[in-house]
Each structure stands twice: as structure tokens, then as C-alpha cells.
């Protein structure tokens, strides 16, 4: 097909359909694709905010061989024919990414040892790959109290990186969004403003789309570290959603139910709250088998006990929230 566009990323070329973004093309090539903390394929309008996916375009297109002067967000920038992109081959990109990771961590509580997301946290993974050992940040950190938003979901705002995914999820999956981003700048927060519970057939999906431990499943909190449980693909007949889920089992108990995610951490099919919260008996489900989490996963790689930054920082208890 002649209308495919050729793009070269870190020296490897691929042909993609018009409209494909640099990030998607890089994911198709498959090895070192840029990280993405805010972009989320299943949710429209996401992306462009966290800036960890910045890459260098050293040639705009065949017709226009000039580079793009600034780094661009690969999650939103569309491929042009003959485009040449530098991701990990560019020192400038790596340096910028290190900077963004540092920014994301300066107000983060670094409370991985007590966070339910530890082991499946995109920020934790990002820091291993792109962060530095120590922090240069010595100022006070942002503080928020953790709150319950509804019977099933807890919000730990200190950990939020303001990716806006949960807001788009509520907008696109439910018919009345009751939470959003309030205030602005570095005191922005995810909130309902008034005491309001996020309660809707599909509200639980905001837990799955959260890249960090800001939105967690209350029914699961502290029951287990994720790496002590074993994931199984399972399904049930459901009138509201596909019923296809992952059951997280410890011995014979279902301790958590989530949607199935692909290797980019993106939900394959959103699930309803009934499947997620109300069916905790094995007899409710048809268990298909153990879910392969892939080699990259922290869950299989056993690297979960490491803190995100230098242990010296964590010792200072004022940085540990709660």
C-alpha cells in the first residue's frame, strides 16, 4: 500500500498508517518505545501532559528535512513520511526525561513501602529506568489527606501525578462525572469538591487507569503486596460488561478483581463495578488459567522491594505520607 508512511526511530524503520503517532509507531517496532504516564490509548483526548514521552524529531519528513526545534510529545505527534525520530539514541531526550522524572518525584511522597501500587506502579518503573539515585529536592512536599470517594475507592492525592486519565475515564465511561481537577498549578488536585462518592456502574475503572497509587481499590488495600498474589484470566456472564477480568488470588481467595491490561498497561476492555467488587467467590467465575504478565513486569521480575530513590531519603520519616 502506497499510502503507508515510513518512519525511522532510533535507526529502525517501520511503515505505518496515516494518523499513527510516533509513540504508537515505536510500540509497533517494539523494543525501546518511549514511556507514557498520561497518554492512554483507550481514552480519547489523553496525552501531552506528563512530558515523559518527549522525543527528538531530527527530520520532519522527506519533503521537509529540517528538524523540529523543540522536543515533541511522541504520544500526540503524528508520523509524516520520511520522519526520523531519536528516542533513546538522543542524549538530549534522555536528559529531558530524567528531568521530567525528577519533577514527577519532587512532590511525590516516595511511600512505596506502604503503597498498594508498589510492584505495578508506572512511576516506580519509570524511576528505575530513567531516574537518578538521589534527589536534589530539599523543600517541603505537597500534602493532602487521603479520602474515601465512595464505598470502594480511596484517593491518596499526594501520590497523584495529574495525568487526568481518571477524569477522562469518568467522562467517557460514565454519564455523570462527579470528580475532576480542582485548583491549579502545583496545588491542583483530583477531587469531588463536595463530599461526594464516585458511584456508578463503571466508576471502578478509574482505579485501573491510574498509573500510580493515587486511586486504589479499598476492598484490596493492604490485604497483600501484589507480588504475593497470582493473576488468573477469568470471565463470567455479565449484562453490563464483557465480564472478562483478571482475578488476583492468594491461595484459594480472590483478593482483587481488575480489568485485563496489555503490555503497555492499557485496559483491554473496561469492566463494571459488579464484576470488580461484588463477585469474590471462585464459583462466580470461569477461570481460564494463569495470566502471563510478560517479562517486563515487576511482578515477574522480582524487583519490587527496591525503593524508588535513595534509601536515605526514605529514612526521613516526614517524607513517608500517612
Amino acid at each position: 500500500m502506497s499510502d503507508l508512511l515510513k518512519v525511522t526511530i532510533d535507526g529502525k524503520s517501520i511503515e505505518v498508517a496515516p494518523g499513527t503517532t510516533i509513540l504508537q509507531a515505536a510500540r509497533q517496532i517494539g523494543d525501546k518505545y518511549p514511556p507514557a504516564m498520561c497518554y492512554y490509548t483507550p481514552l480519547k483526548n489523553t496525552g501531552g501532559k506528563c512530558r515523559v514521552c518527549l522525543v527528538k524529531v531530527s527530520q520532519t519528513s522527506e519533503a521537509n528535512p529540517r528538524p523540529i526545534p523543540k522536543l515533541v510529545a511522541s504520544c500526540l505527534t503524528k508520523v509524516e513520511n520520511g520522519m526520523v525520530v531519536e528516542n533513546e539514541s538522543s542524549a538530549e531526550v534522555l536528559e529531558a526525561r530524567k528531568g521530567v522524572v525528577e519533577f514527577l518525584l519532587i512532590n511525590h511522597p516516595l511511600d512505596c513501602p506502604i503503597c498498594d501500587q508498589a510492584g505495578e506502579c508506572d512511576l516506580q518503573n519509570l524511576s528505575y529506568e530513567h531516574g537518578t539515585e538521589t534527589t536534589r529536592y530539599e523543600e517541603g512536599r505537597r500534602e493532602f489527606n487521603k479520602i474515601d470517594i465512595g464505598p470502594h475507592i480511596q484517593l491518596h492525592m499526594t501520590r497523584c501525578i495529574l495525568c487526568y486519565r481518571c477524569v477522562y475515564a469518568a467522562d467517557q465511561l460514565t454519564n455523570s462525572r462527579v470528580h475532576g481537577v480542582l485548583n491549579r498549578g502545583d496545588v491542583s488536585e483530583i477531587s469531588t469538591y463536595i463530599q461526594n462518592s464516585i458511584d456508578n456502574d463503571f466508576s471502578g475503572n478509574i482505579i485501573d487507569v491510574c498509573p500510580v497509587g493515587a486511586l486504589t481499590d479499598k476492598t484490596y488495600r493492604f490485604k497483600q503486596r501484589v507480588w504475593f498474589s497470582k493473576p488468573y484470566n477469568a470471565h463470567r456472564n455479565c449484562t453490563k460488561c464483557s465480564g472478562k477480568t483478571v482475578l488476583w488470588m492468594k491461595d484459594e481467595n480472590i483478593i482483587r478483581v481488575t480489568a485485563r491490561k496489555n503490555k503497555f498497561g492499557e485496559v483491554e476492555e473496561f469492566i463494571c463495578n459488579e464484576c470488580r467488587f461484588d463477585h469474590r467467590s471462585k464459583t462466580d467465575w470461569v477461570i481460564e488459567g494463569v495470566r502471563d504478565m510478560g517479562d517486563d513486569s515487576v511482578i515477574s521480575a522480582n524487583k519490587y522491594e527496591l525503593p524508588v530513590v535513595s534509601p536515605a531519603v526514605l529514612v526521613d520519616s516526614k517524607f513517608v505520607s500517612e
Partner: peptide
Amino acid sequence: YHHESCGQCSPCREGTGWMEKV
């Protein structure tokens, strides 16, 4: 600038506050 950052993107949201504090 710290006060006026919209807070959407991480470098501006976090960096302006950091510079102000220093």
C-alpha cells in the same frame, strides 16, 4: 509564574514551584 502555572504539564507545574522555593 508558580502562582499562574495551570498545572497541566509536569515540568511547569513542579519546576516553577521548586524554583520559587529555592
